[in-house]
Amino acid sequence: MTLWQTLLDPFNYQFFQKGLVAAVIAGALCGLIGVYVTLRGMSYIGHGLSHAIFGGYAAAPLLGIPVVLGAGAWGLASALAINAVARTKRIGADAAIGVVTTASFALGVALLTKFGNKGPSFDALLFGSINGVSTSDLLLLAGALLFAGAVFTVLYRAFLFSTFDPEVADVSGVSVRRMDALLMLVLSVSILATLKIIGVTLVAATLVIPAVVARMLSDSFSRMLWISTGLGAAAGAVGMYLSFQLEIPSGTTIVLVNAAVFVAVLVVTRGQALRRAGGLDDHVESGAPTPLAGAAR
């Protein structure tokens, strides 16, 4: 077999083709949502929600509920619970995520250990798998991407305002509470749809890394959305390809590709981009102040 044939060999398999499409959609979806998640300082929520949904994955078959429906409802309930607890400001969002999601994950592990698994394998749920991506999985992913795209397009301004300045957005006619709930819904649906490809333990990285790289490369919110979505999709494709060639779980390779891009941008920009993303730039004084012409009275 020539090198060329070896490189193109994965494309001869239908399961790889489906996996590739799924990885591209999953990467794009996580990249898109990741912009909102990271700019709201909620990077940890992806990690938490994926663990919470794991509990739903385990519990749904035992309750006789379709896995997608049960795990989705479980994830949404967890997200809303986190949001509600965090809003009280007595307990921080990080602590709320820690309590709600780890409890849900522990319940999932307990149920799987006691009653066995009727859905995807334990390892596949944890680290993602190239195998067994069905047409219905692809449809769920495509639906989630369309849903997220529609929500973030139609409510672009409201999401931007409530992410940047929720206090003023609230008094300017934007219902921040509704925006928060809607973001949690989109996030839950997206994590649920991508879990099979990327895995519980690695979803958070696909949410965070493309968005952070996009922030390193751009000072524009709209450009960040495009870069993060595109980078997520590309990392999904390359990661899935490497998963096949190296026989490593797909979630792992997708995250490693994202991390490699992060390091490459860091090196190429010599750390300047990271300072932009971290808000470490010096404050720039520009323009002369207006002289005070008499007392303002």
Partner: peptide
């Protein structure tokens, strides 16, 4: 450090 320009920030008040 939020990624918005001055014009984008001002336009936010038309979000609703």
């Amino acid at each position: 450090n939020f990624p918005v320009t001055v014009a984008e920030c001002v336009l936010m008040s038309r979000a609703s």
